[in-house]
Design a binder for these strands. Structure first.
Length: 228
DNA sequence: GCCTAAGACCCTAGAGAACA
DNA sequence: TGTTCTCTAGGGTCTTAGGC
């Protein structure tokens, strides 16, 4: 019988308690920084860095550099399924995600000049599910359906494309740890939402107040779920 | 396997220049 | 005139090396 060294290496990577804690913390599909995962596993940042490198090497995790942070997330459905199966065998419940962000900022806020937060993340999901936006590997591009839909909202894509910046890109959300819409199109969307009074800036910061008409005219038709 | 120390990396903020 | 770009300094995060 020939030993499957690949299986042994992957199993050994999962078997260490600190690495197992990090993997379990990522089971909800969100990304986390090395510092957060170090706290989760109760080890020093340098130790976590070594563990994370090994998990990336074994293709259990993937690393997404964003600014000065490096966000880690499960590499794919296979890794998540394997961990779920091991959790069932161990008899331990799946850990829940507890965001540390204040609720006012978590629901809707600005990220530089575009919209971020729970609603912005669901909005990008809705736009990609409806195939208004597709990821071409180098960013997001608008489909024919998307061009029609955005024009109906009053967004002139030719004008947006002329701006001297990236057209549209996924921007990892600080509180949700999933992408929202960034770039010139994200900025145009926030401008539109403010012009139509769908959202209103709070006086004392980045938080946005989502008005009832935003749900009626904009978010409900896209089946964006309402925050709990 | 873990920790400390040091260095690399990259963001933010401010100021000045270039452009429409 | 307002916006965008570029450069620089300061500071936070992450990785690596060396030792326990």
């Amino acid at each position: 019988m020939v030993a499957d060294t690949g299986l042994a290496h992957v199993a050994a990577a999962i078997a260490e308690p600190a690495r197992a804690a990090m993997l379990c913390a990522l089971l909800d599909g969100r990304a986390r920084t090395a510092t957060e995962l170090a706290a989760q596993a109760d080890v020093a940042a340098s130790t976590a860095s070594a563990h994370l490198a090994r998990l990336v090497e074994q293709r259990l995790l993937q690393c997404v550099p964003q600014g000065k942070h490096r966000y880690y997330q499960l590499a794919g459905a296979d890794a998540a399924q394997a961990l779920e199966a091991l959790l069932v065998l161990s008899g331990r419940p799946r850990p829940a995600f507890r965001p540390a962000t204040p609720s006012g900022l978590r629901v809707a806020r600005t990220c530089y000049d575009h919209m971020a937060g729970e609603i912005a993340v669901h909005l990008l999901q809705a736009l990609t599910q409806r195939r208004w936006l597709v990821n071409d590997g180098d960013g997001l591009c608008v489909t024919r359906e998307g061009t029609r839909g955005l024009l109906d909202w009053g967004i002139d894509l030719d004008e947006v494309r002329q701006r001297r910046r990236r057209f549209a890109c996924p921007c990892l959300d600080w509180s949700e740890r999933r992408p929202h819409l960034g770039g010139a199109l994200g900025a145009a969307l926030l401008t539109l939402a403010q012009q139509r009074r769908w959202v209103q800036r709070e006086l004392d910061g980045r938080a946005l107040r989502v008005q009832p008409r935003a749900w009626r005219e904009w978010l409900d038709p896209l089946e964006v779920p309402r925050p709990a």
